[in-house]
Design a protein around this nucleic acid. Structure first.
Lengths: 221, 221
DNA sequence: ATAATTAGTAGCTAACTGCAACTAATGTCA
DNA sequence: TGACATTAGTTGCAGTTAGCTACTAATTAT
């Protein structure tokens, strides 16, 4: 038996559950009691591209295609990996909340309450969630966390969840309207009590050139 | 001999040269005539961390530590790599313009005029330069491209280089002052003709909470 | 009916951006 | 030596955008 190249693709698939981010984990029967859950992963095939491998893993674990998926980096430190891979290429993805397929023993865990896991998977999750927050202003992550139609309050809640802070309703809507990212549908959603909310769909029209200014606010370290 | 995973760390080290980004390449004697130049790279050691390996490669190729260095992703497609590595972990870094050490046959090439290279290295460079531009508002990339002290006109020129568009002098300086990122020194720099410019140093004081708003401008695809 | 709850809008103020015009300090050249 | 070119740096103005408060609108609960 040749010492096959032990590279793995590990994916962090996220959804919004009950005003909190949740991560999809799968049961690993081969593991000792302390680390029963792992990120969905597979060895890197010699044929497939990394992106395609990641999409396949996500599809199998969640029972549906990830609505957004991007590479989150390579991890080789803290080498304990469920498959003993020397190196992991991590991916981060999102999907709207939906029923899991009956496929495997996959389950959503709140990001703030994860079970014991291999050290590398813990590090990958931390990095993946941080990247989700960093990339949300360059990729439509928030929209991919929602279904095809959504209310503006739901969209704002997703932004608040990812940003970790409250936003002002009027300002949020003005900025959204100025960006030509959504269009209204004919439908309204009654959520029990309160006035029904109009449903919108993600339909980006124009990109407004970036508005010239420079962003110094996030620097400082 | 075990078929160990042939993973490599490849680094894209950049500097600002003559109002253009330049990439450090090293001569590869073992290569056929068409691809004499490669990115600095090394196989991944079983002991070292990826970050440390990357720092070591940069130090050896440039003769000085990179002033900023970050992982840019894993590349396994288009498998032609100078060392036939199955997978490359790419890093992107910057350094102030300075004389190269006498170490190896390393040389700066303008980013817009690169010699023929292995397809994977070409892809890595494209991705690395894109990430440099994307990360400059979250990491002090622009400041690390300059020396310890610099004039505000030099800083603005670096920002214009990375952003690919002109900025307005007054607005740039007002935003910089509001961010408390630089402090003036006692020194002034006479650049030949024109009024001498005061030298500043990078000394971030406080981070101004991100100013609340949401960035929709960069979305749209 | 009345209150509670959620959706959505309008107006004010403060801050920021881009622009143009200005002053300041140096070198160049007649 | 004095006008001019060149680069540095600031100021004031107008248009835009952000956050805030307060308002109206539509539904369910009691």
């Amino acid at each position: 038996m040749r010492g096959a190249p032990t590279n793995a693709v590990d994916i962090v698939l996220c959804t919004a559950h009950d005003r909190q981010l949740a991560v999809l984990l799968v049961r690993d029967e081969a593991k000792r009691a302390r680390e029963r859950w792992t990120l969905p992963w597979a060895p890197v095939g010699a044929r497939d591209t990394l992106d395609h491998t990641a999409a396949r893993i996500a599809l199998r674990a969640a029972g549906a295609r990830a609505s957004w998926l991007a590479q989150a980096g390579a991890f080789a430190d803290g080498s304990r990996h469920p498959g003993a891979a020397a190196l992991s290429v991590a991916y981060v993805g999102v999907t709207p909340p939906r029923a899991l397929g009956p496929s495997t023993g996959a389950q959503w865990f709140p990001a703030g309450d994860l079970p014991p896991m291999a050290p590398r998977h813990r590090a990958i999750i931390d990095a993946a969630l941080a990247q989700l927050r960093e990339r949300m202003d360059r990729a439509p992550v928030a929209f991919r966390l929602l279904g095809a139609t959504f209310t503006l309050s739901e969209l704002q809640a997703v932004y608040e969840l990812l940003l970790g802070r409250r936003l002002h309703k009027a300002s949020f809507r003005r900025a959204l309207q100025a960006a030509f990212l959504v269009e209204p549908t004919d439908e309204w959603q009654s959520e029990g009590r309160g006035r029904p909310a109009q449903l919108f769909r993600y339909a980006p029209r124009r990109r407004r050139g970036g508005r010239g200014g420079v962003r110094f606010e996030l620097l400082g370290g």
